[in-house]
Design a protein around this nucleic acid. Sequence first.
DNA 1: AAGCATACCAACCGCAGTGAT
DNA 2: AATCACTGCGGTTGGTATGCT
Length: 225
Amino acid sequence: MAYQVGMQEDSIVRKGPWLEEEDKRLATFVTVMGERRWDSIARVSGLRRSGKSCRLRWLNYLRPDLKRGRMTTEEERTILQLQEQWGNKWSKIARSLPGRTDNEIKNYWRTHLRKKVQEQKQEVSQEERTNAASTSTRSNEKTKFEHHDVLDIEDTSKDSVDGVHELRNNALLASSPYEISLLDWISSSNQTSPKQQQAQNCFFGSSSTDAEIMLNYCPGSPWEI
DNA sequence: AAGCATACCAACCGCAGTGAT
DNA sequence: AATCACTGCGGTTGGTATGCT
């Protein structure tokens, strides 16, 4: 599944789906180092991922302010409106939808909305041709495409599927690394609790070098060994 | 039950923009 | 001014779940 490329053992870059442990480790380091210098985060964290991959994982999945679950009708409306207005400027559109990522919006557009819009436009042009043929007096009628028309299209076929997705999303939420506040762990006390100890082992157990580097970014933290 | 088709979405890739040196 | 590293963006790919025959 996950595959690797590289010539030397220590330069191998992992690709493919992220493991829970990798998520936790990344979240910890981003919390400490900030959402910048992704190459440094990738290097310092000991994650065998590219900086680019780390950034993407954080922005699209780990960020604490992300909204989960289905798009609301209001959000769907906004996407349709802004997509028509700005085109495929997904990051720009995402700024109008707090908690949603450009990737999420892009995927949603491609899988849910694009087809609907195309069908709607086809219907409109078909209607235009019919109207033009039948009478010239009605040729100036409003034929502009309206977003709410698209939203009103019934799509009963996806109901059962969406139910499953909701379950999946809930499961995802429940297993999010943010169930446990990493920030709290780092900033709370000088005493390392059993849970903190467990995480410490998880993150740093195999590499004292990582722990030492971490301490440089977070002096006096409970991670001190 | 098995195989195929489709939908969904996480992750990757290439390119362009930007700032630092 | 040129170069390099980093970041952000949009398009695309591939794996998995689900539905259909």
